[in-house]
Amino acid sequence: MSSFEILLSFIAMGLAAAISAVLIQVTRPLLLRVALAKPNARSSHRIPTPQGAGIAVTAATLLAGGIVIVMAGAPDLTVPLIVFGASLFIAAVGFVDDIRPLPVVPRLLLQAAAVAAVVFVVPSDLKIIPVSPFWLERGLLVLAGVWFVNLVNFMDGLDLMTAAEAVPITLAIALLGCSNHVPAAAALVAAALCGALLGFAPFNRPVARIFLGDVGSLPIGLLVGWCLLELAMRGQVAAALLLPLYYLADATVTLLRRMARREPFWVAHRSHFYQRATDNGLTVQRVVGEVFGLNVVLVLLALTSIAFDSAIADIPLLLAGAFAVAVQLSRFSRSPPT
């Protein structure tokens, strides 16, 4: 990645932050009327709060990324239009679900269509496991992508939580573009998404004035998943697992526990570890701060994995990441001493 492309990433980040903040200010009065999230048994908020800031975050990411790419005119800064199209499509699905909840099966099928479009746009000569059959790997990636999109949505249940997770990941991916470990286009989109979330953060800090909604969490999950896929396709599987490891662990362990208890796992609930932490007395600021700190640690482990570029070194780094996440989950699940 050239110094010019690095400059473009910073421009995209700043432009996306500005667009996101302005659009939130403009759209919030309308969202107060049409997309008000009222407290329920799953909620962490106590007063009705508008949702739908994801409209601004998604629009800012795609606008800033698209503008900078067009202005640059560089052949290696071509983002497949299908990625932008799939992001808009899944954002529309999320917006409909915010206004009038969709049935589970149609919602998952629509999400799967968006994920499949992104997965199959990756060049066919790129594979994570070279000996695996193409259609088997791509099929499994679609399933993993649908789960990743949904877990980002599941984990968006606390003020600033999505920003605390996605900002370190997207910033790391943008930096990895400097060393060509991800394509320049993916690094630029990650930088734009990072900026859009930074523009959103002041409005979502406790007590939040506005929420992302599904219209934001779903395309964020899709775009972050695409960036991580680009990283994994270039041989950095350990780094691609380490970066989102807290989200993967919290959501997956919670799902498996609910299934083991024969609970209707598709129904909204408050049993994620970060939710149990607030129920156990930790403040929202404390929980989000600890998640952000953990994600910084995971970013450092991922960067170390890439620096060593060795399968042997990846094992202890993955174990270290898993241990750090396990400690955090254990802490969140315990009541603090009185």
Rank of each mutant, 00 (worst) to 15 (best):
A117N: 08
A12P: 02
A114N: 06
P337N: 10
E290I: 08
V83W: 13
V26S: 05
A322Q: 03
G94K: 00
I210D: 06
I173Y: 11
D156I: 00
I315Q: 09
V288D: 06
R261V: 02
L193Q: 10
P75V: 04
A59W: 07
W135M: 12
S2C: 07
A41Q: 14
L110Y: 06
A17S: 13
I67R: 11
G281F: 11
L228G: 05
V291R: 07
A35F: 04
P202G: 12
I19G: 10
A172W: 08
I99T: 07
A187V: 09
V83S: 09
A114F: 09
A251I: 00
C194Y: 06
A172H: 05
V182K: 13
G85A: 12
V70E: 13
V68Q: 08
A163E: 06
T49M: 03
I67H: 10
I315A: 15
P336N: 08
L63G: 07
A144V: 15
M1K: 10
S124R: 13
I55E: 03
S132N: 00
S44P: 00
R234V: 01
P75M: 07
F120Y: 15
T278E: 13
S305D: 12
V237D: 08
D159Y: 01
T338G: 12
A260F: 13
A240C: 08
V149N: 01
A144M: 14
I312D: 14
S87R: 02
V296P: 06
G195M: 01
G52I: 03
V83P: 05
A166R: 02
F211C: 08
T49L: 08
V327D: 02
I11M: 11
F211M: 05
L171K: 02
P206M: 11
L193F: 13
T304A: 15
A186Q: 03
F273D: 11
G65I: 05
F211Q: 04
F273T: 09
A320K: 00
V149H: 05
G65E: 04
L298E: 06
I312W: 15
M259S: 04
V207K: 15
V167W: 09
Y247A: 14
L15I: 05
P316Q: 09
G216T: 01
A164Y: 03
V115S: 03
L193M: 14
L36A: 12
V149K: 05
S3T: 12
R28T: 10
V119Q: 07
I129N: 05
P101Q: 10
G221T: 00
W226N: 04
W135H: 06
R262F: 05
A238T: 06
G14V: 11
A113C: 12
A92S: 14
V207C: 13
A72W: 09
L243F: 00
H272G: 06
D76R: 14
V167P: 04
V288S: 06
S271R: 15
V119F: 11
L15A: 12
F134K: 08
L110M: 09
P80F: 02
L77W: 09
